[in-house]
Design a protein around this nucleic acid. Structure first.
Lengths: 254, 254
DNA sequence: GAACAAAGGTCTAAGGTCGAGCCATTGACA
DNA sequence: TGTCAATGGCTCGACCTTAGACCTTTGTTC
């Protein structure tokens, strides 16, 4: 496209123009807000019963007008994900609704994700780079006392989670906790995106107890390596973890 | 923020809400278009004298209305970066303007980047994850004949670049070429962003011939490892390369 | 030279988004 | 109990963005 047989003597690089240009923004501001907040809620970043920041503050942090943010919140409210109370001490309260039990057939559950197949496969590649990278960086950091506690708590929550839904959330939180230790907002964002897609997929498939046990063992290895400051081992452990999840998902996506 | 002492029994995770929420979109569509196109031009993705895709097609690929895209192009035109010709066979032609020679003092050149200091340091962390990751993935891929040629050509261009400006562009193109071998649009985008920031910095500092020689040697090692399909070595080589550039830049940013 | 095709140039109506101000409700505190 | 502060609820005008249709220019082809 960049070169169409005239004007340029360079042909080989033409492909770069193809791959570098990308949609300037996926959706409208409203949709992005809904998605970001809903993701935060589903991933358990905002625990059940907790309160969102005030609208004015949230709007500013999300770089969006209060009008738009309010529409997004209204959407969440009509979806039953939050409840709003006015007045001082009021606010928007997270109200986790138990995930509607999908029909237990893996194929039909994954069917809804079929249109996003390419995107999701791409995500798995991207994840295999950023999550191990984040583990590596986290292990290089001087992790302070409270942060060690934060990480250990997140690990304990995953291990002790009873039902699949709770486990899913705790899993996401652990991965986000690791990313947050890096202190890099770009890395954190990359992991958040990845976890959001991953969440969609893993919630759509029945995860066996055997998978969960295996996953928990890997989580422990990752956290141990990070706390020990052993960056290469942290990365390798996370790589194995990503590879195993990816294999499971690729198998189902075909 | 997420929890303010009431409503939630969980306090430790409150931080996640802080770090996960992020601006929904950096700028308006118009600004993003300008930035993306200008970046493509500066990085040499669109070689001098080449023609942009037709407006209608470009608009669609960038997910933006033709009106908006046209405004962006008008901005580039008034900045002297492109020239437009009407009629069949016409189009928007890239017109590289020689970079305005900055005053040769490194401190004063970097001064303009001071407001972005945090962002740029973050970028170096992110880069150290995504570029080695991209090299790793690229080396895992079955690189076809034309792709091998593409990569080799990009390498040759960097090595043979005469002036600093040409070298900068060829360098960016090589890194983008490696990323494009992964076939992952998320990875490509991550590398594009990183290279854009990097470009701003490296153009602001005087790069010594000694640095360029060193850099060229590293580039060759990276490309060799990728062509040989040696993923771990490709990653290690790219890590060294990133570390060296980062050390140079961190030193100047303070 | 005439017709066509491929580009950029222009216009309009409809809707999204913003920012800013003001209102309404509620709990905290003097 | 009365006042205040913090919070969500609402409205309005300005601007940005979109989608589509139509115009103009220009090279190609017959």
């Amino acid at each position: 496209m960049t070169n169409r047989g005239r004007g340029s003597t360079i042909a080989a690089e033409a492909d770069l123009g193809e791959v570098v240009l990308r949609p300037v923004r996926g959706h409208h501001a409203f949709e992005s807000c809904v998605e970001q907040l809903a993701t935060g809620i589903r991933l358990g970043v905002f625990p059940n019963g907790s309160t969102l920041p005030p609208e004015r503050e949230l709007a500013e942090r999300m770089g969006v007008s209060r009008t738009t943010l309010r529409e997004a919140i209204a959407a969440l409210r009509s979806a039953g994900m939050v409840k709003t109370k006015r007045g001082r001490g009021g606010g928007t309260v997270i109200h986790h609704t138990p995930a509607a039990p999908s029909d237990s057939s893996a194929e039909s559950s994954m069917a809804g994700l079929a249109p996003r197949r390419e995107e999701l496969l791409d995500m798995l590649v991207f994840r295999r780079v950023v999550e191990p990278g984040a583990s590596f960086v986290a292990a290089c950091r001087d992790v302070t006392g409270p942060q060690r506690q934060f990480l250990s708590d997140a690990l304990a929550e995953v291990s002790s989670a009873r039902d699949p839904s709770t486990h899913r959330q705790a899993d996401s939180r652990l991965h986000l906790a690791i990313a947050s230790l890096t202190g890099s907002s770009k890395l954190i964002h990359a992991v958040t995106e990845v976890q959001s897609d991953l969440h969609d997929m893993l919630q759509a498939i029945p995860v066996l107890p055997v998978n969960i046990d295996h996953s928990n063992a890997q989580h422990e290895a990752i956290v141990r390596a990070i706390l020990a400051g052993n960056a290469p081992r942290a990365r390798r452990a996370m790589e194995s973890h990503c590879d195993d999840t990816a294999a499971l998902i690729r198998g189902l996506l075909g």
